[in-house]
């Protein structure tokens, strides 16, 4: 086990896990209490369009995914802010549109040049130093956002109308939150892939929510749980030669079921 962590790629993977976990803990908490999980799903899957576009135009796929995710984030924030009905259908369309665009753009790109599986299911074991810089940047941005606007975010999540009457610019804050979600989602794609993003964003906050009565400690507990899932998942994946991303999510899912059954057993009514 000690040997395992002496490899550079494993150290990078662990460092990336910590960065990704804190991003998951903070953003995941906010999207769970704001009921924005479906929005995060739409951005995650839709961002595949950005990867396709990036491949076609020959730019870095993660950069393409980030820019496209930010664009989709703005679009979704605008749509949801209009408070129109059928928001879920509209997000479903964006979700499917992004994936279709991604597939068509890769079809049009001559040669099948990259391992698309790594974007679908993550490649935490091949995280490069450049990736770590990008992750650190988003990590710092997300932390600053949550710390600076903590009061306002809590008030908006709990009661947006009240927050608005108390002078909080709810519109701006909501757009900020969706954009942070978009950035966070792209970073998490690097670790567990876009198919599994939602699991890492929702399982730790879901479990943490039952254990605390403050948003801040929900963020802390989620981050810690996420690190735990990543570490155990990584170890299992290298011992049994399994996909790292899927192993991480499997550890998380099993924890979720255990917690779920435990809470049912504790409160039979």
């Amino acid at each position: 086990m000690i040997d395992l962590f002496s490899f550079d790629f494993m150290q990078n993977a662990l460092f990336a896990s910590v960065l990704v976990s804190v991003i998951c803990g903070v953003i995941g908490t906010l999207i769970v209490i704001n009921r924005m999980v479906f929005i995060a799903g739409g951005i995650a899957h839709g961002s595949y369009g950005g990867i396709g576009l990036a491949l076609y135009f020959g730019i870095a796929p993660m950069l393409g995914a980030s820019l496209f995710a930010l664009f989709l984030g703005l679009l979704i924030a605008y749509i949801t802010h209009q408070n129109s009905t059928r928001i879920d259908s509209l997000i479903g369309v964006i979700w499917a549109f992004g994936m279709a665009l991604g597939i068509i753009m890769t079809d049009l790109t001559p040669g099948y040049n990259v391992d698309l599986m790594s974007y679908l299911f993550g490649a935490i074991l091949s995280v490069s130093n450049e990736d770590l810089y990008g992750m650190s940047g988003v990590f710092a941005l997300v932390l600053a956002f949550a710390l600076l606007f903590y009061k306002q975010l809590l008030a908006m999540s709990f009661d947006a109308q009240f927050a608005k009457l108390r002078g909080v610019n709810v519109t701006l804050l909501y757009f900020g939150l969706v954009l942070m979600t978009a950035l966070g989602v792209v970073i998490i794609i690097r670790a567990v892939g876009l198919i599994l993003v939602i699991a890492l964003l929702t399982i730790p906050p879901y479990i943490a929510e039952k254990m605390t009565n403050s948003m801040g400690s929900m963020m802390l507990i989620s981050s810690f749980l996420s690190v735990l899932f990543c570490a155990i998942g990584l170890i299992l994946s290298s011992f049994f030669n399994l996909s790292a991303g899927a192993s991480i999510i499997m550890v998380g899912s099993i924890s979720f079921f255990i917690q779920f059954l435990y809470s049912k057993w504790r409160a039979p009514n």
Partner: peptide, 19 residues
């Protein structure tokens, strides 16, 4: 609607001090 929302009574009242 969200019955698990992680907030305690004191933090709700503090919201009144936002502005």
């Amino acid at each position: 609607a969200n019955k698990d929302f992680p907030i305690k009574v004191l933090d709700v009242v503090l919201m009144g001090r936002l502005s």
